[in-house]
Design a binder for these strands. Structure first.
Lengths: 244, 244
DNA sequence: TTTTTTGAATGGTTTAACCATTATCGTGTA
DNA sequence: TACACGATAATGGTTAAACCATTCAAAAAA
């Protein structure tokens, strides 16, 4: 029935007051909080306690702290970074396997690209084509590092075209985390890279004619194929782990 | 090319060391860290700095701190709570609107229930039926508070049946956040409550015969209808805000 | 045996001082 | 005049030692 009364920790109260000021718009992104030595007086607390509060706000992604004169706590625009970080912890802790993320991607990116097909502006499609050409150049130069990066950008840009921030944040969080792993597990090879490129070519074509269903099927297949290759590669490496 | 060298903050180093120990399994959930006064000596730092590190780890959801003798920092099993909290910040800050979440739910819960239909065990279906009966009782007693709670449990249980922790975490995070709002915006009324119940009856029936497509359509419709009603209600309240 | 009291371990807070970083301003030199 | 360099001060980062508050467990009392 009742929840345990929250224990009285002074820094929590400070956190809440500053957080509420930020969320209510009283403090806008870019605004600078007073110096620690002033804040501590305002809240009638010690500097150590105040700093614990600032640490929490920083971790929540609400403020950013700069050093030196004219430094201090600056209100940040809230973004998906804290979610990215929490997701990374879930993965690293083993609570989430890459299989689970792959299954999630197959289901979700299909939906996202469907929305993207409905909503993409001509400028969006131009941007996708620009990214595509960029990726192609990296492919030709065999610059796999940058190719992967551009691949990630294209995926997150699909999120942007969906014009729904939930999908944008998710797409960013997921790809931010999986690329770290795919890069470890999948030594690049020209065939798969070529496949990837072709998939995007087809997706862009589908976006142009606003064929959400087609785009959806392509990307679901894209993700599934990519993941299966990774699994296969992993299995091989586990069978003969000492092939150096 | 290069990233800015990370600034040397002692407490960050402490955070990383403890975090790595936890993620590597060196410290398992339930394990108790040494007392602050001992840790500060181990890390050769001051208690204030060490406490800032503990504050960050606590915020990340990696540890929990208990008071009193035999208290201290205890390693927590990582869960979706930090993601829930970050999502709540995104919503409260206005970066995310309820419309965006509704659209996300329509797309995603369809996918989740499709997986659930494939994977639900007989025990799962029994549990859903138990929850359904529970909700029905609350309905008959006009206990809207508990009805909403049970409704939320049913939605999150669909995530559990999907057997994919990504969907479980998302379902928990989303519903944890939206119910807070739906409860504010939508005074309960018997008609919609009845509709909700009927939807779940149909979903359970579809789960029984493993008809993922049917279940998917029902829940997508369920979410869409629910959201539209809320929008309409909001619009009415804005037109005549002083109807008390 | 049960209840009450006491003590010690541990997190929470305060204070005061010092260190490290950096923007700004003044001064000297080309 | 214009630029480079160095002093200065503001500000976050760290340290240290002490005290307060909470809690559990052991000792004492009923």
């Amino acid at each position: 029935m009742f929840k345990r009364a929250k224990q009285t920790r002074v820094f929590q109260d400070v956190v809440e007051q500053i957080q509420d000021a930020i969320l209510s718009g009283e403090l806008e992104p870019g605004a600078k909080l007073p110096a620690e030595r002033d804040l501590k007086d305002m809240f009638n607390t010690s500097r150590g306690t105040l700093r614990e509060a600032l640490r929490v706000l920083e971790q929540k992604g609400l403020i950013e702290i700069k050093l030196g004169v004219a430094g201090g706590a600056i209100v940040k625009r809230i973004d998906a970074d804290p979610i990215c970080e929490s997701l990374a912890l879930l993965i690293r802790s083993g609570e989430l396997a890459l299989e689970h993320l792959a299954e999630f991607r197959i289901k979700t990116e299909g939906s996202i690209v469907e929305l993207a097909a409905q909503r993409a502006t001509p400028g969006d499609i131009q941007e996708m084509e620009r990214l595509f050409e960029k990726a192609k150049t990296y492919f030709e130069n065999q610059d796999w590092e940058n190719f992967l990066k551009t691949d990630e950008t294209m995926h997150t840009y699909i999120g942007i075209m969906s014009q729904n921030p939930v999908f944008q944040f998710l797409q960013k969080s997921v790809h931010d985390n999986i690329h770290r792993y795919y890069k470890d597990y999948l030594p690049m090879n020209p065939e798969r890279t070529m496949e990837n490129l072709n998939d995007f070519k087809k997706i862009i074509a589908a976006l142009k004619v606003k064929d959400g269903q087609a785009a959806s099927h392509i990307i679901m297949d894209h993700v599934e194929r990519f993941h299966k290759k990774m699994q296969k590669k992993n299995a091989e490496e586990n069978n003969e782990p000492d092939n150096s």
